[in-house]
């Protein structure tokens, strides 16, 4: 990358790990995650905030990582799909529910869908159908027609509720 003098240092916590990077003004959070940290679970679909494939948690809220400048994420706490599973790599109940409900077809939307589902279930462990639709309204899926995805969210909610 040229014009190095234009770079700023940013640091943030990604999936519990403290990281530092040198970024250009136009570098996005998505670029840091994918290019610098090689966390390839977060996808780039539309690049304009419409598809939700790049959804991550930033300070506890879902954001489109394609619309956040890396500089704006300086000091933030980020969670990507790689941070969702347990310490031994065991699948999160939401991930398992997506598999069991047949909600993963090509899989491109899945990381974003799972992050949005996680954010929903943290706030509202037993969402109604319209709340599920609203929570996933910023995540597009070209394959499933959404039925299996909504089913997966209901399944995850039930299982997580039973466990408590």
């Amino acid at each position: 990358m040229e014009h190095k003098e234009n770079k700023t240092a940013v640091s943030m916590t990604v999936n519990g790990k403290h990281i530092q990077a040198e970024v250009l003004p136009e570098t996005r959070l998505l670029d840091v995650l994918r290019e610098e940290l090689h966390l390839l679970g977060t996808k780039e679909g539309c690049s304009i905030g419409e598809c939700g494939a790049c959804t991550v948690l930033m300070n506890g809220r879902t954001v489109n990582a394609c619309m956040v400048l890396a500089g704006s994420a300086d000091g933030a706490e980020i969670m990507t799909i790689e941070g969702v599973c347990g310490p031994e790599g065991e699948l999160h109940p939401i991930q398992q529910a997506f598999i069991d409900a047949g909600a993963v077809h090509c899989g491109f939307c899945t990381p974003g869908m799972i992050i949005s589902t996680l954010s929903l279930l943290m706030k509202n462990p037993q969402p109604k159908d319209d709340q599920i639709q609203e929570a996933l309204s910023g995540n597009l899926c070209r394959c499933t027609g959404y039925h299996q995805i909504f089913k997966a969210v209901r399944l995850a909610s039930e299982r997580m509720h039973r466990k408590e």
């Binding site: 939700g52 930033m58 879902t62 954001v63 489109n64 619309m67 949005s116 929570a135 309204s137 910023g138």
Partner: peptide, 9 residues
């Protein structure tokens, strides 16, 4: 406005 992701920012 937009989606949950847009409303966060």
């Amino acid at each position: 406005v937009g989606s949950p992701q847009i409303r966060s920012r």
